[in-house]
Design a protein around this nucleic acid. Sequence first.
DNA 1: TTAAAAAATACAAATATGTCAATACATAAA
DNA 2: TTTATGTATTGACATATTTGTATTTTTTAA
Lengths: 112, 112
Amino acid sequence: MKKATPCIRRGKLKVESLERAAETLKLLAHPQRLRLIEILERDKEVPVHTLVAETGFPQAVVSQHLNQLRRVGLLSAKRRGKEMLYTICDPRALSILNCICTHCSEGDFEHE
Amino acid sequence: MKKATPCIRRGKLKVESLERAAETLKLLAHPQRLRLIEILERDKEVPVHTLVAETGFPQAVVSQHLNQLRRVGLLSAKRRGKEMLYTICDPRALSILNCICTHCSEGDFEHE
DNA sequence: TTAAAAAATACAAATATGTCAATACATAAA
DNA sequence: TTTATGTATTGACATATTTGTATTTTTTAA
């Protein structure tokens, strides 16, 4: 996982920087992808078929989401036999999920 | 500005909670809206025409962005004469911008 | 009242995203 | 090799977002 250097914000962000930031946020802005990240946060290294089983989403959908998240560097993947193990490799994925949950209450969670 | 209560995450987030989170993130996931938030962070209460002048975006575009951000509760607005003053009212808007900038370097900023 | 300034809205065109089914690819085991 | 399992990719389609132009509303001041 990349190191999270504290941000020193001075001046205005360049348009290109804003665009990259927006692209990253856009990929996080999807309920199914947030669910995948939630699971990956808990289980660290997870093969696709497990994510399919846990979420109930179609395999193609899960695979597409994972690839998108990997493309922008939020996730990484490595092969283990037939499986592909996905991992969160950008701490922003987690901190944004936490941040967005700042206003979550008990009622936002499922209790088993 | 709402108080940011720390998030205690237990169990899985409900689908509806994920959907609300995704909706909020989606609105932040736009370079122009991020720029507006950046300016609002600095200047606190800003009328639309100032945002138009600072960004160079068309008035209708700025107005639409501001309304979208207000609809999900990230911004609030109050009238002062002919002007509408916009303010950030959800701290998540700021913390997500900060969070996304975790990996920003000097080169991401414009130096005047 | 009328005119001007500030902001919001409506609508259509262009673009981007999401979804689904089918298919292709990769690996391991028989 | 053949087969089975696990993933990735493709193409068609529906839906959503973005953007631009024009118009409308709201408010103040003449």
